[in-house]
Amino acid sequence: MFDTSSLSMALIRGSVLSAATLVLIVAIVRIIGVRALSKMTAFDFVITLASGSLLATAGTAETPAAFAQAIAALTALLALQYGLAWGRSMFRPLRQVIDNRPLVVMRDGEMDEAGLRGSRMSRDDVASRLRQAGIADPAAVSLFVLEATGDISIVTNGPVHADLLASVRESGGTDGDRPR
């Protein structure tokens, strides 16, 4: 049913190409930095998905040209991610286009209904996160923010400095909203 010489060559080719691709990815990530593997924004997530697909393509390439094309595409994606990470740190308009903005879900012990809707979190989700953070009384919470990466930040020690709120959306508003 199977040509054993073709089957053994396919197994060898798949193993060698996958190992070579993995070595190349590690080298590229070492050059570009851990940003490629860190907490992800939506853009980072898409790059990661595409990278996985290209890794599979490279590992199953049947010709040198197909392998080279997959590696070139993977390198280009990771370089683009690196360039955009640099650009986001330098240019606010680019950051506003690419990144999600943190969103206030609770302020001064009170749930922000618009923030709950905007974050797609329920009151039970918020209560669970407060318990996980060891907070026994919601009134102790100065600020509860859903961060751009999906992490939760909870501040309990009084007023929050305005500089920490510069990029935070309030009341589920648009990017034009300014923090209170």
Score class of each variant (00 low, 15 high):
35 R>K: 15
138 P>Q: 01
25 I>D: 00
49 L>W: 13
56 A>L: 08
75 T>S: 12
146 L>D: 00
159 P>I: 10
43 F>Y: 12
22 L>T: 13
55 L>A: 15
103 L>S: 02
8 S>N: 14
175 D>W: 05
35 R>P: 08
38 S>T: 13
12 I>F: 14
125 D>I: 04
55 L>W: 11
106 M>G: 02
178 R>W: 04
163 D>Y: 01
110 E>T: 10
130 L>M: 03
13 R>F: 05
133 A>F: 03
94 L>H: 04
140 A>R: 14
123 R>G: 03
141 V>G: 01
20 A>M: 12
87 G>N: 12
164 L>D: 15
141 V>I: 03
28 I>M: 09
35 R>H: 14
69 Q>I: 14
65 A>Q: 11
144 F>I: 02
173 G>E: 15
27 A>E: 01
82 Y>H: 14
143 L>Q: 13
81 Q>A: 04
180 R>N: 04
116 L>T: 03
69 Q>R: 13
77 L>P: 02
145 V>C: 03
47 I>P: 02
180 R>H: 02
159 P>H: 08
123 R>M: 02
156 T>V: 15
54 L>C: 01
126 V>H: 01
85 A>L: 10
44 D>H: 09
134 G>D: 06
79 A>S: 12
19 A>W: 05
7 L>D: 04
174 T>G: 14
158 G>Q: 07
147 E>W: 14
177 D>M: 13
40 M>C: 07
121 M>W: 13
111 M>H: 12
89 S>T: 10
93 P>T: 08
147 E>L: 09
82 Y>G: 03
63 T>F: 13
60 T>Y: 08
24 L>I: 09
21 T>V: 09
83 G>P: 00
179 P>D: 07
177 D>V: 12
111 M>R: 08
42 A>D: 15
63 T>K: 11
74 L>H: 01
149 T>Y: 00
34 V>A: 15
28 I>V: 11
158 G>V: 00
168 V>K: 01
116 L>K: 04
49 L>R: 06
24 L>D: 00
66 A>V: 07
151 D>L: 00
65 A>C: 00
51 S>E: 04
50 A>V: 13
51 S>R: 05
77 L>H: 03
77 L>T: 05
86 W>C: 09
166 A>V: 09
83 G>S: 14
125 D>C: 06
179 P>H: 15
19 A>I: 10
113 E>L: 07
38 S>N: 15
171 S>P: 01
143 L>Y: 14
58 A>M: 01
18 S>C: 08
96 Q>Y: 13
158 G>K: 11
80 L>R: 15
139 A>H: 11
112 D>L: 06
16 V>L: 04
166 A>G: 00
51 S>M: 08
177 D>W: 04
144 F>K: 05
42 A>G: 15
